[in-house]
Deep mutational scan, measured.
Amino acid sequence: MQRVNMIMAESPGLITICLLGYLLSAECTVFLDHENANKILNRPKRYNSGKLEEFVQGNLERECMEEKCSFEEAREVFENTERTTEFWKQYVDGDQCESNPCLNGGSCKDDINSYECWCPFGFEGKNCELDVTCNIKNGRCEQFCKNSADNKVVCSCTEGYRLAENQKSCEPAVPFPCGRVSVSQTSKLTRAETVFPDVDYVNSTEAETILDNITQSTQSFNDFTRVVGGEDAKPGQFPWQVVLNGKVDAFCGGSIVNEKWIVTAAHCVETGVKITVVAGEHNIEETEHTEQKRNVIRIIPHHNYNAAINKYNHDIALLELDEPLVLNSYVTPICIADKEYTNIFLKFGSGYVSGWGRVFHKGRSALVLQYLRVPLVDRATCLRSTKFTIYNNMFCAGFHEGGRDSCQGDSGGPHVTEVEGTSFLTGIISWGEECAMKGKYGIYTKVSRYVNWIKEKTKLT
Rank of each mutant, 00 (worst) to 15 (best):
K459C: 11
G442N: 14
V374P: 05
M65R: 08
C97L: 02
T332F: 04
V56Y: 01
C108W: 02
C396A: 01
R191F: 09
D410G: 07
E165Y: 09
I429R: 15
K45F: 01
I15K: 11
L24N: 04
F388M: 11
R140D: 09
F121R: 13
S99Y: 08
A26R: 01
T209H: 13
N452W: 05
D110R: 11
T29A: 09
I284H: 07
P239C: 01
K45E: 02
C382S: 02
R373Q: 14
Y441E: 00
Y330W: 14
T287F: 09
V277H: 01
W453D: 00
A279K: 00
F144T: 02
G357H: 12
E281M: 13
F345G: 01
A317I: 03
L369Y: 13
V202E: 13
V416P: 00
V30H: 14
E61C: 00
S423K: 10
C108G: 02
G254T: 01
W261M: 02
A192S: 12
D232S: 11
A436Q: 12
N222D: 15
R46P: 02
G432N: 14
R140Y: 07
C102K: 02
I428C: 01
I256G: 01
T190H: 14
C396R: 02
R3I: 13
N328W: 01
R404L: 15
K274D: 15
D322V: 03
E98G: 09
Y330V: 05
E73M: 00
V56C: 03
I7R: 14
Y47H: 15
V377F: 03
W240I: 01
N138M: 07
V359N: 12
A250H: 14
L103P: 04
Y330H: 10
A207K: 12
S411V: 15
V199M: 13
N36T: 11
Y22L: 07
E208Y: 15
G254H: 00
F144K: 02
R140M: 09
G106F: 03
F78R: 02
N310G: 07
C407G: 04
G402M: 15
H361P: 12
V273H: 15
Q370I: 03
R62H: 03
T186L: 06
R75Q: 07
C108Q: 02
R180E: 02
K109I: 10
G442Q: 15
S430I: 12
Y371T: 14
P235Y: 07
K188D: 07
V269P: 03
M8H: 13
A164Q: 08
V368C: 05
N38G: 14
Y444W: 02
R83I: 15
R364Q: 10
C407D: 03
W118Y: 10
P44C: 05
N100V: 08
E86N: 10
F31E: 09
V30R: 11
G357Q: 15
Q2N: 15
L52A: 08
C157Y: 01
C134S: 03
T461P: 14
E53M: 00
L318F: 00
L130H: 13
V153Q: 07
L346V: 06
A26N: 04
G253T: 15
P197R: 09
F78M: 08
A164P: 02
G402I: 14
G160Q: 04
T290A: 06
F121A: 10
N213D: 07
H267D: 03
E67H: 01
M437A: 13
V277R: 00
G412V: 08
G413R: 04
G349R: 06
G230D: 05
D33E: 09
N343F: 03
G357P: 07
N36E: 13
F196S: 15
V451K: 04
E35V: 10
G402Q: 15
W88D: 02
P301A: 09
T426E: 01
E323R: 07
A37C: 05
I284T: 12
G403S: 15
V30T: 15
I336H: 00
K45H: 01
E401Q: 12
H361G: 10
Y341L: 06
K260C: 04
R226A: 08
F399P: 15
F348H: 09
S217C: 06
V181P: 14
Q185S: 13
N393C: 03
C117W: 01
G246T: 08
Q219A: 15
E433N: 15
C268V: 01
E116D: 13
N48R: 00
E35C: 05
T422C: 05
H289L: 07
V243A: 13
V257N: 01
K247E: 10
C252W: 01
R384D: 08
V183L: 09
E320A: 03
V181R: 13
F424P: 01
I262Y: 00
H314Y: 08
V92D: 12
C178A: 01
V227F: 14
R75H: 15
C117K: 02
Q2M: 14
K311V: 07
L321C: 02
I284P: 07
E281K: 12
P375D: 12
C145F: 02
I40C: 05
C145M: 03
Y161F: 11
V181T: 14
R162M: 10
T426Q: 00
Y371L: 10
N135D: 15
E193W: 10
E340G: 08
N104F: 04
S350R: 13
F55A: 12
M65I: 14
L244V: 08
S49G: 07
I454K: 01
K457Y: 12
A337E: 02
K152D: 11
C108K: 03
K438G: 14
G236V: 06
R298L: 04
T81H: 12
W118G: 06
E82K: 05
E82N: 09
K168Q: 12
S11D: 06
N36F: 10
V359T: 15
W431S: 11
S182G: 09
R162H: 11
Y450T: 01
F87T: 02
K137M: 14
K89V: 10
C69H: 00
V296K: 01
G398D: 04
A265R: 02
D378W: 03
N59C: 04
A366H: 14
I390W: 08
N80T: 12
E171F: 09
K39W: 05
C435T: 04
G439D: 06
N245D: 06
V273Q: 06
Y91F: 06
E116W: 11
P301E: 06
H303E: 09
L14V: 13
R449V: 15
I428K: 01
I17A: 09
Q90G: 12
F221D: 14
L41H: 08
G421V: 03
K274M: 09
F176E: 03
K446T: 04
S204I: 06
Q237N: 08
N258G: 04
L211P: 09
E270K: 10
T276W: 07
V359F: 11
K446R: 12
C157L: 01
E270Y: 07
N213F: 06
K274R: 13
G402S: 15
D111L: 14
G94F: 06
Y312W: 11
K347N: 12
I344G: 09
K188V: 12
L19T: 09
T287E: 15
S11F: 13
V326M: 14
E159S: 10
A397R: 02
R62P: 01
N104K: 04
Q237W: 09
V296F: 01
T85W: 11
G427N: 01
R162E: 11
V228Q: 15
